[in-house]
Amino acid sequence: MWTSRARFFFLLPAVVWIFAFTLFPLGYSLYLAFYKVETRTEVTRIQEPLLDAAGEPVLRPDGTPRTRSVVSKEQRSIAEFVGLANFRRLWVDPQVHEAVRVTLLFVLMAVPTQLALGFLLALLFNQRIVARPVLRTAMLLPIFATPIAVAYLFFTIFYEAGGPLGWTGIPFLSDPFWALVSVAIVDVWQWTPFCFLVFLAALQGVPDELVEAARIDGASGLDILLRVLLPLLQPVVLIILLLRLAEALKLFDIPFALTGGGPGIATQSYSFLAFRTGLRFFDLGYASAMAYGLLIIVMLIVTFFFRRLRQSYG
């Protein structure tokens, strides 16, 4: 019964949609990656007959129609096949190296912190505490707060002259290293609650008897944590790690709003650089090559994890 042809009728619209809006653009940008694309604005002037309100041509005294000049601007892209030149350039471009370094450093700072903090908070909230539902709900707010708004918000918090953290004397946004730390802090603020929430859900799924049994067998709190809870939570840790890694590598909104990539290019993430190259400097071919670099890395991570995760979608 469930192998009827009708199944395609249900599935195909979504598949076709993704082909049209994801795979086609990806194919297109792969094609672009082999070209050097220059966008020029061409200005053309056309003489058009001038019409009056009734739509009749307005005539000069000598009987010829009056004209007006219409200026039209058109962006035209000129593409030249350059083979692998864009990819070679990607390999040696110091801006790209810096962006890769910045992105990786960011991931290394932000993702483990989120996981660790989220786990600690989940352990805390898993105890018998007062008003847990209310606090848990309050912890949800950062997850859905608009990232761009959050980043601007933190701009006011990190403001060095008179902001609420001004007393620390830390050059949050003006020092290259601290600026990246600040970007990571914003990400940690936004995504720790996510890790917390998922860990808490997983912890609450651990049967109490298991922990009780371990305790009766004389296991200490640390033993229970390391030998009972962590092994049980391992699949969840992997899922969170995968999702956060894939997201963190796309880092774009926070540096865009918080630091503008600065000071200098100290917080210019890879996505940010690719975006600037493509849609600010209109070096479309090179930007496409750059985007492919990121795509390949994300896909590698995803494939690596999906091997292990496929079971959960059986």
């Binding site: 774009f252 496409s288 990121l294």
Partner: peptide, 15 residues
């Protein structure tokens, strides 16, 4: 379907 979700948007903005 799931793998579409982790696609970096910056890879598609130019096209």
């Amino acid at each position: 379907f799931l793998s579409q979700r982790v696609l970096p948007p910056v890879a598609t903005v130019v096209p």
